[in-house]
């Protein structure tokens, strides 16, 4: 029995160490979240926070950077900028760009409008989130005025034209000839969003049954 006890103690040490590893790795899983954000920021991936990192997100900073870029206009190069709009999940909205595509020179200040129409009977506070494709073009796309800088409040049934003023950096890599700017509109009241998601799931389940019959 004495021997048994001794061996139990030595297991205890090893098992203790291994348990520490287990908890450390559980923590590491969560540490991946800030690490992911840091790596995306550092390398400008996924179009996340690049402008915040550069200090050019927001009307004032965007204006300063944009005016600087405009002094270096490159008329020998023409690129295409496309505009898209997506609604998050199930918002009962109309949301679209009034210009689908345009050609421009890097360094040229351009202006486009997006149209949004709140079809619900409720007042909605919405936030537009931009994204640029390809991802490597993100940091060369400067917004001088943007409806995405602030949350937008819509009265029931209200329609708004929202302005975007932007400029493309002349340093844009040579292999990029087309940039797509997409906006996704989010309802900032998440709970409302989730409830309507449930309805969508139920509807999808119903239609998949109907499809069979």
């Amino acid at each position: 029995m004495a021997e048994d006890k001794k061996s139990a103690i030595s297991h205890g040490k090893l098992v203790g160490k291994l348990t520490v590893v287990v908890f450390a790795m559980f923590g590491f899983g969560f540490a991946l979240v800030p690490m992911y954000d840091m790596i995306c920021d550092a390398f400008g991936l996924n179009g996340r926070f690049v402008e915040i990192e550069q200090g050019t997100f927001g009307a004032e900073q965007g204006q300063i950077k944009g005016q600087q870029l405009a002094t270096r206009r490159d008329i020998n190069r023409t690129i295409t900028v496309q505009f898209t709009a997506t609604l998050n999940q199930s918002m009962a909205w109309e949301f679209e760009p009034l210009t689908r595509s345009m050609e421009l020179h890097p360094g040229e200040i351009k202006q486009v409008k997006y149209l949004a129409h709140n079809k619900t009977g409720k007042k909605v506070v919405a936030q537009a989130v931009p994204s640029v494709a390809p991802g490597q073009a993100t940091k060369y796309f400067t917004k001088m005025e943007c409806f995405c800088f602030d949350q937008q409040t819509f009265e029931p049934g209200e329609t708004k034209e929202m302005q975007l003023v932007f400029v493309v950096d002349p340093d844009l890599p040579r292999n990029v000839n087309t940039i797509t700017l997409g906006y996704t509109f989010f309802d900032t009241d998440r709970k409302a969003g989730l409830e309507s998601d449930e309805k969508i799931i139920m509807a999808a389940a119903e239609s998949s049954k109907a499809y069979l019959n």
Partner: peptide, 26 residues
Amino acid sequence: VMPVLAGAVTMMLTDRNFGTSFFDAA
């Protein structure tokens, strides 16, 4: 790695039920 999986599903659980946004762009 099993603890990392446990972390991933825990994040799913809190995203689904407790209002976190680990994987929610909104």
